[in-house]
């Protein structure tokens, strides 16, 4: 069974509110869609409209989808009753959905046991969000939509989210994560897409196949690298001038929208050099290709966070996180000897 979006989009007058989306999600897929706020809201609003289900723009390949009530939604603006406790809230949701679940287990999974009798208004922002994540374990559905689930939450809550997503995947669910952060979408999703005015574009393909291609490319250019001279500066364009950065100033380099972006002191600069070239040049300065789209300065890395056996990220000294792909994890482990 697949969850299908077909011609899912909206045009008002001459304005494209949401570009047409064609997407098929298979069971156990965690589809992460990186989009700006405008498209994200348009996407969610359209998902809430009955029209999308009536016209089969959203449907199940083998099953009936009545409407928005058949889907789980986690939205950033959803609140909780401030005078109830997490335990009472969970009981209320169980009664509302008409299901019997093991409340102890849900509290444990959401790591809310310690605050189970504390009023919701006294919970921290992250605890409140964990409570909302817990609702996904109660609602009887297999389709889950999360909007910015990791926005502003602490590390503990991110781990809870991972655990809950794994729980949901155990029951052959379809999960869609909408986020504005590319790093988060790469970290959480098994399939990553970007929603832009050009529509929905797959960002990451089969990682292993790509690794092979990259390895081949690397071997082809091996001879060239021998002759490469040591570059001391990396150039970036800012307005009408070019800035030259000392390699060690750079925190990490990212490829976004086919552009190479240098992250320096919490600022972004578009580089004139390609990612591949930068990688070659900065290798000797301790830069490491942690992901297909990221090159990180290892001197800036403070933590290697293991979310699950397939999900890793690097936390830099400036608190920013950079995804670390599964295949690169072993390489980094070897490199850093831990």
């Amino acid at each position: 069974m697949s969850f299908i979006f077909e011609g899912f989009g909206k045009v008002v007058g001459n304005t494209v509110v949401l570009p047409s989306i064609q997407l098929t999600i298979e069971k156990k897929d965690v589809v992460a869609i990186q989009a700006d706020m405008e498209y994200m809201h348009a996407f969610l609003s359209l998902m809430e409209e009955d029209r999308s289900y009536m016209t089969n723009e959203i449907r199940l390949s083998d099953g009936v989808l009545h409407g928005v009530e058949d889907l789980f939604f986690y939205r950033t603006n959803m609140g909780e009753y401030k005078r109830l406790t997490p335990e009472q809230t969970i009981r209320f949701w169980c009664d509302l959905y008409g299901v019997r679940v093991d409340i102890e287990r849900i509290l444990a999974l959401a790591e809310l046991n310690e605050v189970r009798n504390k009023k919701n208004k006294g919970l921290t922002f992250s605890e409140k969000k964990r409570l909302q994540f817990a609702r996904s374990l109660i609602q009887p559905t297999t389709i889950y939509i999360f909007q910015e689930p990791t926005y502003h939450i602490d590390l503990q809550s991110k781990q809870v989210l991972n655990r809950i997503l794994n729980e949901l995947l155990k029951k052959d669910s379809f999960i869609i994560i909408l986020t504005s952060s590319l790093e988060e979408s790469i970290r959480i999703g098994t399939k990553v897409f970007r929603l832009t005015d050009r529509g929905l574009q797959r960002l990451e393909y089969n990682e292993e196949a790509e690794e092979e291609v990259e390895e081949k490319e690397a071997s082809d250019t091996e001879d060239e690298t021998i002759y490469q001279q040591r570059f001391e500066k990396i150039s970036a364009k800012s307005d009408d001038k070019f800035i030259l950065f000392d390699p060690l100033e750079i925190d990490f380099v990212e490829t976004r929208d086919r552009q190479t972006i240098l992250h320096v002191n919490n600022e972004e600069f578009i580089s004139t050099v390609s990612m591949k070239d930068i990688e070659t040049r900065l290798h000797i300065y301790g830069f490491f290709r942690c992901h297909r789209s990221y090159l990180v300065n290892l001197q800036r890395v403070r933590e290697v966070v293991v979310w699950s056996k397939n999900s890793y990220s690097l936390t830099l000294e400036n608190e920013k996180t950079v995804p670390l792909s599964k295949s690169r994890y072993g390489e980094l482990k070897e490199l850093l000897n831990w």
Partner: peptide, 12 residues
């Protein structure tokens, strides 16, 4: 005010 009504709307 609390944003709790959104759930009711989504649950129809």
């Amino acid at each position: 005010e609390q944003g709790t009504g959104i759930l009711y709307r989504l649950m129809k």
